[in-house]
Amino acid sequence: MILLTLMAIVVIAIVTQRSLFGVVILSGAYSFLMASVLIVYDAVDVAMTEASVGAGVSTVVLLGTLALVKTREARADARQPLALFVALVVGAALVWGTLQLPSFGTADAVIHRHVAPYYLQNVVPQTNVPNVVTAVLADYRGYDTLGETTVIFTAGIGVMLLLRGAWRRAQRNRKDA
């Protein structure tokens, strides 16, 4: 509860903050708060991902962006009644859509009656994995996870190729100059 309040404070501060560097630091702080909330909810693996991606990698990427962009602020057209109206309508529609959902954490919601009981009963005899989440991800949905890792691997190779090309070009330019 306290953590969520702190997160809300941090988000408001991020929105109102003028110094971009402060925003980077605050987003790192936000990630650590989010990780703490996830720990309290007993989802340690998700919390670790949040801390590594949110606080570690994102901070570095955001700082790299900050080094590339200009520091001058563009003048904002402050009042846009149509945009505000659209945002409010879309937000209201989304909230209205969630009203139909079963309340959070109820055991007899539809998603908990489909295959979850089967997994819970058969994980240990079928896979010998004590952690059900791990068993579902790496065993029952093994092909799905394989596809995901293939996509991420391909994306990583693409980024490395692009960066390497840029590096080579910079080297050649330096030699010519």
């Binding site: 702190l6 941090v10 501060a13 402060g22 605050l26 702080a29």
Partner: peptide, 9 residues
Amino acid sequence: MALAVVRAI
């Protein structure tokens, strides 16, 4: 943590 948030802001 709350104090650290205040300082960061």
